[in-house]
């Protein structure tokens, strides 16, 4: 599987990554090489094999429905790029 520049652009958009036009060909080459490596997977027939999402065959643990967290807004917003009146600010969202 080889990716062309258009596909790289499409993937970069889906992942919200700005890629300089001049770098696109290099990404296309590298990503294609990685996909070529990945395609070795098809060498093995996996028909009927149960997919394994997780190394542990365990069930999810459940916590009691209790409030354990208190307000730490000021503390958490110290690392925020842009806040005002307790809100995180972003460029206008158009609905």
């Amino acid at each position: 599987m080889s990716l062309d520049a258009d596909e790289v652009d499409k993937i970069a958009h889906l992942a919200r990554l700005a890629i300089d036009d001049k770098d696109v060909p290099e990404y296309a080459t590298n990503l294609s090489n990685i996909l070529e490596l990945v395609e070795q997977m098809s060498a093995v027939d996996t028909t009927g094999v149960e997919p394994m999402a997780h190394p542990l065959e365990l069930a999810q643990r459940l916590r009691e429905d209790e409030v354990s967290e208190s307000n730490q807004r000021e503390h958490f917003q110290e690392c925020a790029p842009k806040v005002e009146r307790g809100l995180y600010l972003v460029p206008k969202v158009i609905e």
Binding site: V67, S68, E69, Q72, F76, Q77
Partner: peptide
């Protein structure tokens, strides 16, 4: 519920903005 689905922050309605958003919610 009184707390959120994946964190121990309160679900009470009408609080000041981001005062009920804990590390997990953020």
């Amino acid at each position: 519920t009184t707390s959120k689905i994946f964190s121990g922050a309160s679900t009470a309605y009408g609080a000041e903005p981001n005062t009920q958003a804990c590390a997990v919610d953020l």
